[in-house]
Design a protein around this nucleic acid. Structure first.
Lengths: 194, 194
DNA sequence: GTCTATATAGAGATAGAC
DNA sequence: GTCTATCTCTATATAGAC
């Protein structure tokens, strides 16, 4: 079936990129671990590796955005909602055996200087995620500019915390950043009321 | 001369790792761009690529720690001192044509699952940097646990901001995170006085 | 849609001369 | 300390059969 094989390739690529990066992930490994037919890769992605990776990154960006958006819509209080997002990410990080959590970061760092296509794909994915947080914060009454600063800081803090947690093989950095973001959002809200 | 060639290899490796990551940086390229004699690589690093990269990462960690420590010791007020560190990093990011600023992150993400040696080297480097910030904050009167949370958040925020700034080719994310860290540290200090 | 075979290039690493 | 030559492996990509 057409979309089935293609989807296997994209999902396997996403998974491998997350722990090996762009240059560390070979097409042979992708084909092998996906179980997809060997001859299908260049049928679905005639432009080769870069196109396959771009598709995987875009899908990961969508997944992250939907995941975040769902949680933010379920909890009315903005501070608690952001807290819950980070808590859920910590859970995912734990079950991934301390090797997941930043599906875009490695590729972004490796390729931002060499591939415009992959760089912009990552940029769009990050911006989509930032927008989701910013929208929640503006709806909660934060001024627009402050909401944008805070949303960027949330995403940056999470990405950085994942890097630290992966190198330390511990959830502690993510827990610490979660606490700090809670403080930041709470006191920003307080300052705005006074 | 002995140390001269070795140093050329290490410095070139550091520079290439920063924008290409571990698997994207080949030994041939390192030798070529360093201008070091081709035959010297395995003389200075008999254990091969992993050892060379580990040396480069350790040196980058030291460099970052010294850079930060110097600035923090020059400015008495802790909040202003941290602000100044981020400002200086933004300057470096600008002159690197939006491709530098996170010398450890790419390798950390690529290899944390496959190389204990590189993972722990990155972990040690990050911890050294966190300790420098934490020490400044405790000296400024922040309680120990709060200082550790804030120090981790500073480093995580910076690393995440660099990722965003590189993908967006703009200093804006770093500026935004700088502002947010300023708010966080100021209000944490206020809360502690009341 | 999928296969195998292959082209071409580059990787990391080793041996042995100098 | 440094050189060249070479080994082996793997990479991406393509061609052409089925």
């Amino acid at each position: 079936m057409s979309n089935r094989t293609r989807q296997q390739l994209v999902e396997t690529t996403s998974r491998l990129l997350e722990r090996q990066g762009y240059h560390g992930t070979g097409l042979n490994q992708i084909v092998r671990e996906s179980g997809a037919p060997r001859g299908s890769l260049y049928y679905y992605f005639p432009e080769g590796k870069e196109a396959l990776v771009a598709a995987a990154l875009a899908e990961q960006g969508d997944r992250m955005r939907r995941f975040t958006s769902t949680i933010l819509s379920e909890i009315e209080d903005a501070v608690e909602a952001v807290d819950r997002v980070v808590e859920r990410l910590i859970e995912f990080f734990s079950v991934s055996e301390h090797c997941g959590g930043a599906p875009l970061a490695a590729v972004a760092l490796e390729t931002s200087a060499s591939s415009e296509r992959l760089r912009t794909t990552c940029a769009d994915a990050y911006q989509g995620l930032i927008d989701v947080f910013a929208q929640k914060l503006t709806q909660a009454g934060y001024p627009l500019q402050q909401a944008q600063v805070l949303a960027t800081t949330i995403v940056a803090g999470i990405e950085g915390a994942v890097i630290l947690s992966r190198t330390q093989q511990s959830t502690l950095p993510m827990e610490q950043v979660r606490a700090a973001l809670h403080t930041l959002l709470t006191q920003a809200a307080l300052a705005q009321r006074c």
